[in-house]
Every structure is written in structure tokens, then in C-alpha cells.
Amino acid sequence: MRYSYYPGCSLHSTASEYDLSTRAVMEALGVELVELSDWNCCGASSGHASSHFLTYALPLRNLILAEKQAAGDLLVPCAACYNLLKTADYKMASRDGEAESLNSEMQTIMGRRYEGRVQVRHVLEVLALPEIRRKIAAGVTRPLSGLKVAAYYGCLLSRPPQVVAFEDNPEQPTTMDAVLRLAGAEPVPWWGKTDCCGASLAISQPGLVETMVGRIVSAASYAGATALVTACPLCQSNLDTRQAPGQEMMPVFFITELLGLALGLAGSDKWLRRHMCDTQPVLAGVGGSLTAAHGKAGM
């Protein structure tokens, strides 16, 4: 199984642990990733705020590159990139006048049009494939038993449903919960799954984002979770850095990090030490103390 891989800007910097853990997990599951050559920022979320043309043109350049490089479906770990790439693909599939004019602009700029042959896939979508689920079930060596987590999907994996969703019920997504169960963890039922973390308002309106993050963390805590799990670098960053000072902090994992731990993969300490909120207290004692075992193995 081979995918073209679009990491997006965050995975090359603030969310490098998501990049590292995604690559490690995919390799362990026999999925080959070929990074899209010369990819550009998809524009999330300032592109669409500032120009209707940028909304589509920035992701469209990546779709055209993916079609040209033809390394397989385009795998995207970032929910915001995923959403914008899907939105551009959806627009082009409509073949309306605007799609036509976008294509002729791109023909002038890149010497190439988009023919609509790229399938954009989110990491969660791939982890939920029956074949991959079987491999996960067979590969778990350190089940995360006793770890109660709240699977947090955020906005952009399921909205708007006609454009992006791979969930049966976009208001009540379940794919991440299923992966967590395979990894031996206990995902709690809760109501904050698809609430908004405040996204790109974190820098310009930090007070608003603290309020929104506070609601999510309280809901997860009320449901009995000791940690949050995300599949989006912006959600993880907001939840990890904007919890109200003075309160007990709840660690925020990427789904691929927990999966990597359960699969017993090397290098998990390199992912987890990048977190702002310490992950050790929650992991201590889980599945026979995961990270301690990793430390001894010199990983």
C-alpha cells in the first residue's frame, strides 16, 4: 500500500511529533509514504479569509502536483489541510464556471490542469480501513489498558459533511474511538467530540481560545477521561497550550502517538518530549508503564 504524503506546514514545525509518529506508524503497518515534492501551504486558515481565489488556488497547486507525481492517493494528517484539499477537489468536481476559470489560471501558472484524479485521504480514514485495522489488532504489543481518553475530532474532519466527511454520522464520529479501542485504550462517551477549539484565533484572540479550550477540557474531564486525543495539529496545539493556568493540565496526544506506543514502536520518547503539557503522569502505570519500558530499550 502506497500513498503520496502531504505533511503541511505544521507537521514540519510545531507538530513535528505528529509527522514522526505518523511516519513510524504507517511504516509499521506496511504503508509506504512518498512525500509530495515541492508542496506548498494550503492556506489554512488565512487564505480563505483573505481571498476567494486563494481558497482554491493554494490547495489546487498541491492537487495538480499529486496528480502529476502519481504516487497514489494523497494522505493528509492535518485536519485543516485535509479540509481545504477536499474543498478544492469538490469545487473542481463541480465543473462550474469558476472551476473552469481556476483550471485555466493554473494552466497558465503551472502549465497543467487538474483532471480530478486525486483521492484525498485523512490519516484516520486510512487507520479505519479493514485491512489496516487487522494489522493494528495483530501488531499491538503493549495495549494501553487502563488509559481513559476522550477522542476529540474537532471541526474540519467532518464539516461540511457533503464535502469532507468519512464518518457515518458527522455529528457523532467514531473512527478514532475504534482505533483507540484496538490499541487497548478506553475511549469515553462525551459531548465535546466535534466542538471547535478556536483554530487560528489562538494568536490574535487568545482569550476566546482559552474559553473554548476550557469547555472542551472540562467536558472530557467530566466524562472521566485523563487525556485528550486529536488528529489535527492546530487542535493539539490549542489544547496543549491554552488550558487555563492554575487548573490541573490534561495532556493531549496525537492518535498516531498512542497507536505507536501500543505497537511498541521505537522513538516514542522523541515525540512525547515535544509536548507542552507533560504526558508522563498519565502514561505511568498504563499497560505496564509504556515509556519506562521504552527508556530501558534505549529508544
Binding site: C9, H12, S13, T14, A15, S16, D38, W39, N40, S50, S51, F53, L54, A57, L58, R61, E105, T108, I109, M110, T241, R273, R274, H275, M276
Partner: peptide, 29 residues
């Protein structure tokens, strides 16, 4: 974040920046 290696000092640049400049030139942003 900087201590944890989350913020890079140097910018990553793509090679076809000319294409990005043209996209922006057409955006009317």
C-alpha cells in the same frame, strides 16, 4: 516551544516560488 524544537529559525522555501507569487498576483488579496 522553541526549546522543544517546535519553532524553526530558518524558513523552509519551496523551489517553485514563482508559481506561488503568480497565484498571489492573481488573487487580488
Amino acid at each position: 516551544m522553541f526549546r522543544r524544537g517546535k519553532l524553526k529559525l530558518m524558513a523552509e522555501k519551496i523551489s517553485r516560488r514563482d508559481e506561488i507569487r503568480q497565484i498571489f498576483a492573481r488573487s487580488g488579496e
